[in-house]
């Protein structure tokens, strides 16, 4: 059983990382969600074998107990993750309503510096009238 869950963690992480490397914001968010589900599974795994109860009453003492600590941590992690994903979705929506596209955009200043001197040539090539207007 542990092997199955461990493989599942691997699959969730692989899918998550693949999705994060995309350019579409919704896919990135899906990727993060998938990855954090993988983390939750991993935390559960750290509590030992599956199938035991985290707490029991006095009558059933002597039963094998599961470690309750990872379950508490998973709970915290899920709450944090829930808040984060809703925030990201709100931001993706804001980004879409501002730019009309569901994509990660380039940093223009970064591009300008990378192009350096060539930026003037490119300006003149693509919009000669605007450059003329600016120079006057």
């Amino acid at each position: 059983m542990i092997i199955v869950v461990a493989v599942l963690v691997g699959v969730l992480f692989a899918t998550g990382i693949f999705l994060i490397l995309q350019r579409t914001l919704t896919r990135i968010i899906l990727g993060l969600t998938t990855m954090s589900n993988g983390v939750s599974m991993l935390l559960m795994l750290s509590g030992g074998r599956a199938g035991a109860a985290p707490f029991t009453d006095r009558q059933t003492s002597g039963v094998r107990l599961a470690d309750p600590m990872p379950q508490a941590m998973v709970l915290t992690a899920i709450v944090i993750n829930f808040a984060m994903v809703s925030f990201l979705l709100a931001m993706a929506y804001r980004s879409m309503s501002l730019t009309g596209a569901d994509e990660v955009e380039d940093d223009l200043e970064d591009r300008r510096i990378a192009l350096g001197e060539r930026v003037e040539e490119i300006y003149e090539e693509i919009a000669p009238d605007l450059v003329e207007e600016r120079d006057q």
Binding site: L32, S36, V39, L42, P70, M84, S95
Partner: peptide
């Protein structure tokens, strides 16, 4: 919003990795 998106995603990724390493420490 553009730069905030980068910031949030990268930091969430870092938090995920941190949580993984904490989980492994616990395991």
């Amino acid at each position: 919003v553009r730069s905030g998106m980068t910031y949030v995603i990268i930091n969430l990724l870092a938090s995920t990795l941190l949580l993984v390493s904490i989980g492994l420490t616990y395991a």
